[in-house]
Amino acid sequence: MAETTTPAGTTVAEVLAELAALEDPKARAVNEKHGDDHGVNLTRLRALAKRLKTQQDLARGLWTADDTAAQLLALLICRPKAFGRDELDAMLREARSPKVHDWLVNYVVKKNPHAEELRPVWMADADPVVASAGWALTTERVAKKPEGLDLTALLDVIETEMKDAPDRLQWAMNHCLAQIGIEHAVHRARAIGIGERLEVLKDYPTSPGCTSPFAPVWIAEMVRRRQSGTVA
C-alpha cells in the first residue's frame, strides 16, 4: 500500500504499526469467538482514537488498509457526515466483521444525512448482512421517528421472514420486533404474539442481570421498567 500522509502529519503506516504493537493474543481469541479478526483491546483502541482526534483523511486511509482494527479505528476518528451516499454503501458492503458492521451503522451511518435514503434500499438488498443494516436503521426510526413508517407492514414482514432469516438479519429483525412492542402499545400484543409463535432467540443464553433478547420477554421487561420509572 502506498504511503499516505494526512494533513495532521500522521501516516497510515505509522498508525498500522501502532495497532500491530497493540496486538494481544488473548484479545484476539476473545474477539474471534464473535467473528472479529483482530487482537486489539477496544479500550486501548479508543484511547488511540482519542489521541488522534478527528482526522477524516486518515480515517479513509485506514479504512482501505484491509485490517479490521484499522477499520474500527477509522470509524472512531472520522467525520460521519462527510461520507457520500455511494461511499457509505460501498463501505457497508466491505464491512464483513460484525463489530465493523455494527460500528459503521451506529457510529457513522445513523449520523449521516443519507441514512434515510439508504435505509429502504438496504432493507431490500439480497445480501442479508446489508439488509440487516437497513433493519437496524428502521429500528432506530421505530424508536425515535416513527412518523411515516408502516408498522403493520413491518410486522407482516417480520412474521413471514424472521424465522428462517440468516443469523445477523434475524437478530436485526428481532430487535425491530421488540422495539415496536416496546414503543407502540397499539401493536404490543401482536408483537408479543409473533415472538411467542416464532420462538426466535427463545433459548438464547443470557447472563445474570441482563434482559433476554427473546422478544416477548424483552418487551415485557422494558415496559415494566418504564412503568416503574426505572428507565427513561
Rank of each mutant, 00 (worst) to 15 (best):
F83D: 02
V100C: 05
A220T: 15
K26Q: 15
K145L: 09
V109R: 07
D167G: 13
L48F: 07
V223E: 10
E18D: 14
L104C: 05
L42S: 11
R93N: 06
Y107C: 09
G39Q: 04
R188E: 05
L22S: 06
D37G: 01
K163S: 14
I180K: 00
L169G: 09
L48D: 04
D67F: 00
P7I: 01
G61L: 05
D150V: 09
L16E: 11
A69C: 06
F83R: 04
M222Y: 15
G61T: 02
D37P: 00
H34T: 10
L149I: 10
K81W: 10
I77S: 02
G193C: 01
C176P: 12
D37V: 04
L22T: 03
P80F: 08
V129A: 14
D89N: 13
V109D: 05
D125M: 04
R60D: 13
L154Q: 14
A153H: 09
W63F: 07
L92V: 12
D67T: 04
A59P: 13
L177D: 03
E32M: 11
C176N: 07
L48Y: 02
T152Y: 01
W103A: 10
E23K: 15
L62G: 04
V157H: 09
R60V: 11
L42A: 09
D36E: 10
H101E: 06
M162N: 09
P128W: 00
S228V: 10
R44W: 10
R46L: 12
G229I: 04
L16I: 07
V108C: 12
L169M: 08
T64P: 00
P128F: 01
P25G: 04
